[in-house]
């Protein structure tokens, strides 16, 4: 697995800085009077896997939620600063969050399939996006289930309630559900942390296969996992009362020679 990863990293390291899929400027997230994270100027390169790491409570998840404006759903949450995707600030009030979320998909920590059948989980978003042709929907559902390696396991029982699948299968279904809308960017919030080690390995492999086709931003607690899958790394920390971004760059470079003392200590496991 490593041998397929290393060349890409070296290409990234040697060539000119890659195009950015997402760029935030001075991003801050508040919940009521509480500041979760501030001053974040994150750069997410296109079609690579960006891992966001850092200790608990440093605002990683808040930043991830703000990227497709799911923070809109949290009462009392306020996001300030800029989030540029394709040069447009998605925090601009007139920006359509529905269109944004169809382009920027999300996979959650805990698998959250709809309490409906497997097929309906994938069919609904397609219908909602206006894909009227039933054959086309069926084709896309099959393709995306094959992509996440679930097709052979569930092809015979697409009408089964999705919640009867195992945890790992549910999470792959949720990834399939996010991919079926053909987004450009996929946000993943600790997608393996609720799974057993084997299922976790399967999902991790799946994430690596998405490299090159999608821009993936994945929050993880697992340093080994970040080391295995990340092309680009963003390290968050808590400074004073709020979280902040301390260091970002190509993953290999940061793992080999972190610029910040905090990062070095964290990566060595010397604190926390």
């Amino acid at each position: 697995m490593k041998s397929t990863v290393t060349p890409i990293r070296s290409v990234v390291a040697e060539s000119a800085p890659p195009a950015l899929a997402i760029q935030t400027k001075d991003l801050a997230v508040h919940y009521g009077a509480l500041c979760a994270v501030r001053g974040v100027s994150l750069q997410v390169p296109q079609q690579q896997i960006t891992a966001i790491i850092g200790p608990s409570g440093c605002g990683k998840t808040s930043v991830l939620s703000s990227l497709n404006r799911l923070t809109d759903l949290i009462p009392g949450a306020r996001v300030s600063g800029q989030i540029l995707i394709d040069g447009a600030d998605v925090l601009w009030p007139a920006y359509d969050p529905v269109a944004l979320r169809r382009r920027v998909g999300k996979v959650f920590q805990k698998p959250n399939p709809f309490p409906l059948s497997i097929a309906r989980n994938l069919d609904l978003p397609l219908r909602d996006q206006g894909v009227r042709n039933a054959d086309e929907r069926a084709g896309r559902i099959e393709a995306v289930l094959r992509r996440v390696g679930l097709w052979d396991e569930v092809a015979q029982r697409l009408d089964m309630p999705a919640q009867q699948l195992s945890g790992g299968q549910q999470q792959r279904l949720c990834i399939a559900r996010a991919l079926v809308l053909e987004p450009d960017i996929l946000l993943m919030d600790e997608p393996c942390s609720a799974l057993d080690p084997i299922a976790s390995g399967v999902v991790e492999g799946l994430i690596e296969e998405l490299r090159g086709d999608y821009t993936v931003v994945v929050v993880t607690h697992n340093l080994q996992q970040a080391r295995r899958i990340a092309d680009h790394l963003a390290v968050f920390w808590t400074s004073g009362d709020a979280g902040c971004l301390v260091e970002q760059g190509p993953a290999g470079a940061i793992f080999d020679s972190p610029k910040q003392a905090i990062t070095a200590a964290y990566l060595d496991g010397r604190c926390c």
Partner: peptide, 8 residues
């Protein structure tokens, strides 16, 4: 919630 679209 911000206005998403002006159409009906």
């Amino acid at each position: 919630m911000p206005a998403s679209a002006s159409r009906l």
